[in-house]
């Protein structure tokens, strides 16, 4: 177990290092720079050169990379050119709405997908099965932005239940905070319902057809006991894997939803940082998101033996 953990950790570090080089190289391959964006259309070449020098953009790329890496290792994520604040501070602020939406979206998808999938697995071809298939199809086929716009139209503009867009921080009260998050979370969650629902259904169907279920039924375990105690319990590994994976992509993929709902989250931060060439923000934000992604997967890997004691972790077998 320890060796396994260490091996995974080493793989994780390799991913981070390669990723940091790729991100840095991509940024330097990108034309345009923050100085031209700040000074705009009618700046003279001299003004641009002066600002470039002041922002430290005139040094060679490899030196910039080393500076950045050594700063990150000391816990300094850099200083945003446009936001005039340390990137760590900005990220700390921006990650709150994004994580909140991702959590709420995961919650929505779990409470919708799991019961629906269980009902579908119990009676294949029944009403729950058909509706799960329909939701799954819709979730995959309808683009997130379209769904978001429809939700806004119906629940914000017509019915007025939720605000059209924007974000309220948790300090403004839990109810206000939630009101702003519901529509974006539902828009994101529906896609997850389709993924999670289908995985849960097929895993449970798989488990229910195994011989130990037949034994359990023969022993007189109630249908509910069979379904929850054995079916769902044994399907947990694929479900948790999908949940963790989708949580990571919710963090990274909230760009569209954050744009439509005008939420100052990480997705919006990256998009605006790219269009402004705010290098420190792009580098460090991508690094942190990648880090969250791999750490999440690492944690899930470690969780497997707890969920299913039949799984043994050894460095040779899985790393």
């Amino acid at each position: 177990m320890l060796r396994y953990g260490l091996a995974r950790l080493l793989a994780l570090l390799q991913v981070i290092v390669v990723m940091s080089i790729v991100v840095y190289a991509l940024i330097y391959a990108m034309p345009g720079d923050p100085a031209t964006v700040i000074l705009g259309d009618d700046a003279t070449p001299e003004q641009i050169a002066e600002l470039r020098a002041q922002l430290g953009l005139d040094q060679p790329a490899w030196l910039g990379y080393l500076d950045w890496v050594s700063a990150v290792l000391r816990g300094d994520l850099g200083y945003s050119i446009f936001l005039r604040a340390p990137v760590a501070e900005v990220l700390g602020e921006r990650i709150v709405p994004t994580v909140s939406i991702a959590l709420l979206a995961s919650f929505v998808s779990v409470i919708v997908a799991i019961p629906l999938a269980l009902a579908a697995a119990r009676r294949q071809g029944g009403a729950a099965d058909v509706s799960l298939t329909v939701v799954a199809m819709l979730g995959i086929a309808v683009p997130g932005f379209l769904l978001s716009l429809l939700l806004v139209r119906v629940f914000a503009v017509q019915l007025g239940w939720f605000p059209v867009a924007g974000y309220a921080s948790p300090d403004e009260g839990p109810w206000t905070f939630l009101r702003y998050l519901v529509l974006p979370a539902v828009a994101l969650g529906v896609v997850q319902v389709s993924v999670l629902g289908r995985i849960t259904r097929s895993s449970v169907v798989d488990v229910l057809s195994s011989s130990f279920i037949t034994v359990a039924r023969a022993k007189g375990v109630s249908p509910a006991g069979v379904l929850y105690g054995h079916g769902l319990r044994n399907a947990l590994v694929p479900i948790v894997t999908v949940l963790a994976g989708s949580f990571g992509s919710l963090l990274a993929g909230a760009v569209v939803v954050e744009t439509i709902f005008n939420i100052p989250g990480v997705g919006q931060l990256i998009v605006t940082a790219i269009s402004r060439r705010d290098y420190p923000v792009i580098q460090s934000t991508v690094l942190v998101i990648a880090l969250i992604f791999v750490v999440l997967n690492f944690v899930v890997d470690l969780l497997y033996p707890l969920l299913d004691p039949r799984i043994r972790l050894t460095a040779g077998a899985r790393a």
């Binding site: 716009l149 806004v152 139209r153 914000a156 503009v157 059209v164 867009a165 744009t259 005008n262």
Partner: peptide, 18 residues
């Protein structure tokens, strides 16, 4: 002054009275 970059979002927010 609220920064609302998406024109569809601005318009929806106007329709809803914000």
């Amino acid at each position: 002054f609220d920064f609302v970059v998406d024109s569809a979002t601005r318009f929806s927010a106007f329709l809803s009275g914000e």
